[in-house]
């Protein structure tokens, strides 16, 4: 192509592209909005959205968390800490349970690590604070009254440990305790 031909082509091309962009922008004036008037209008977030973390209870209403520390060790920002203690029946639970949300990246690894479905991420994301210290949540801020997802699961039903009035052999899929005094095979 000659020099002139190329110059004409480029001029046309740039002009067309500019006009098309102007049209596109202008046409959005009449299109449906993607943004919403937050906070007047709340967006829909799927239940699996990873926001504020809660501690749930089992179907019997007991704290689900057994203070196993797996969430804490899975957490990449090390923002979970807790201390195990136990009640008089031998049931483990956390003496304190603390999440420093100013460090949390809402990755959900804690929920994945949790063997009891105690720790769960919820779609609530409105956690901004003016004072960073207020982003430190203790157990009383984390514990909710229901089971959240997986409403039927109860760890102590299947654990094999005797706790809270459930003796050995009374859990799911458990045989009666072995009679040590019998010599029968």
């Amino acid at each position: 192509m000659s020099q002139i031909g190329r110059a004409v082509y480029l001029t046309w091309d740039y002009t067309w592209s500019t006009l098309r962009t102007l049209w596109d922008v202008a046409s959005h004036t009449f299109a449906k909005r993607d943004t919403v008037e937050y906070p007047d209008e709340m967006p829909y977030l799927a239940p699996r959205h990873r926001g504020r973390i809660v501690l749930t209870r089992d179907p019997e209403g007991n704290e689900r968390c057994v203070a196993c520390n797996l969430c804490a060790v899975a957490c990449p920002t090390d923002c979970i800490s807790l201390q195990k203690t136990e009640d008089e029946t031998g049931r483990w639970y956390p003496e304190y349970f603390r999440i420093n949300f100013s460090r949390c990246v809402y990755c959900g690894l804690c929920e994945e690590a949790c063997p009891t479905y105690a720790i769960q991420l919820t779609p609530d994301f409105e956690m901004a604070e003016y004072n960073r210290q207020n982003m430190v949540y203790e157990k009383e801020h984390l514990l909710i009254s229901g089971p959240g997802k997986y409403p039927d699961y109860s760890f102590y039903q299947v654990s094999g440990k005797a706790v809270s009035g459930r003796a050995k052999g009374e859990g799911l899929n458990e045989a009666k305790p072995v009679n040590v005094k019998s010599l029968l095979p």
Binding site: A72, V73, C79, I80, S81, S102, R132, Q133, V136
Partner: peptide, 16 residues
């Protein structure tokens, strides 16, 4: 090497 809770252990006293 997997010592956990380092950003949370004392956060109740001081978050930094």
């Amino acid at each position: 090497h997997r010592y956990s809770g380092r950003t949370s252990l004392r956060a109740n006293i001081r978050v930094a």
